[in-house]
Amino acid sequence: MSVRTDLPSPGWRGWLTTDTPRSRTQARLGRAWAGWTTFRRNRLAVAGLLIVAALVAVAAFAPLLAPYHPYAQDLGSRLEAPGAAHWLGTDAFGRDILSRLIFGTRLTLMIVVLVAATAPLAGLVIGTVAGYFGGWVDTVLMRLTDIALAFPKLILALAFVAALGPGIENAVIAIAVTSWPPYARIARAETLTVRRADFISAARLQGASSLRIILGHIMPLCVASLIVRTTLDMAGVILTAAGLGFLGLGAQPPLPEWGAMIASGRQYVLEQWWVAAMPGLAIFIVSLGFNLLGDGLRDVLDPKGD
């Protein structure tokens, strides 16, 4: 009977930072805590996290935060400069720009979530299947991926929307369809590093099916790099969606989509600059937030990346 000397230091912090976790949950939480302490040191990344959190909060509480209804027209006070009544001014229909920006967060968030939920998932499936099976499956899938990777994304998205018809759903589809290839490459690379590992062989010897191995053992290991890449890509997704909106191919009026708002302010830009300037600032802040967050996450989740 020996006396245990490795008792954790007291308190929840000690429980988290112990190097002898007693349970799986404790180990996981401990790792998350270690990641958080690394992340916290990067002030820019924390700023990014705050911006993204603010985006979510504003989208959730939009009706409470917006001083006006986003569609409420007041032709008596159209194109009013920023002031006490309308902090960011009004547009050509006398609608309050701030309120429209606040409700626009919902559209931005919807686009981001829809693309983030589809393109990386497709890439994950293609990449892990190619990497796990190897051989001709790998050759065929990766050739397809390389071909798709060589396409110009924005132009193809434009052509897709042109064919499907303008609209926010079609814009999302076009962006998702053109952005899966990098995820497939990353997932395959991750799969190749683990597929010969002993724990995979052990699972196979125990009779696990390929499906089970890919779903249960390989995919979870690819998730970290995919999250980093997805976060970094979200800025690009927001910019592409805004660009489609600006060209009149994304969200249609009167939806308060930021790119479309810039387009509608374009003809007044030389005199009433705020109509086009404010939505652009909103796009800039949000995509900067995702870029900063992605940069910080890369340092925490994927240290070998940089």
């Binding site: 800025a235 690009g236 910019l239 805004a242 660009g243 600006f246 790119g259 810039i262 086009a276 300037a277 939505p279 652009g280 796009i283 800039f284 995509s287 900067l288 995702f290 870029n291 900063l292 940069d295």
Partner: peptide
């Protein structure tokens, strides 16, 4: 980062 975040048309 700023260059990557700003909408070019804006």
């Amino acid at each position: 980062l700023v260059g990557h975040s700003v909408p070019i048309f804006w």
